[in-house]
């Protein structure tokens, strides 16, 4: 089930879109980067941690700010074109 529960501003959308894109980029980079490349590998591991925190931080902050509906075992989704927020459960 998917239910429309809110909307964020263009600026807020841009913030999470950048984090989303970065997270995807880091995940795909992780597939090709090995520990042999010590410096870059460490940088990657650190960045994955920081980006995940920022990513989760955005959802927590927005959920609080807009008081979004929650569901057990559900999760929220964003439509990057419309800025709409959905509850998927």
């Amino acid at each position: 089930m998917k239910k429309l529960i809110g909307k964020v501003t263009e600026e807020e959308k841009k913030e999470i879109q950048t984090l989303f894109e970065r997270r995807n980029g880091l995940n795909e980079l992780a597939k090709i980067l090995t520990a042999d490349n010590e410096l870059l590998y460490e940088k990657l591991v650190k960045d994955i941690g920081e980006t995940s925190l920022k990513f989760q931080g955005w959802w927590d902050r927005m959920a609080k700010q807009y008081n979004w509906e929650r569901a057990e075992n559900g999760n929220w989704e964003i439509d990057f074109e419309s800025c709409d927020i959905y509850l998927v459960y």
Binding site: G25, L26, E28, L29, I32, L33, L40, K43, L44, D47
Partner: peptide, 10 residues
């Protein structure tokens, strides 16, 4: 593509 990803990140 591998090089691009690594270099853009580095």
């Amino acid at each position: 593509c591998d090089y691009l990803k690594m270099e853009m990140f580095r």
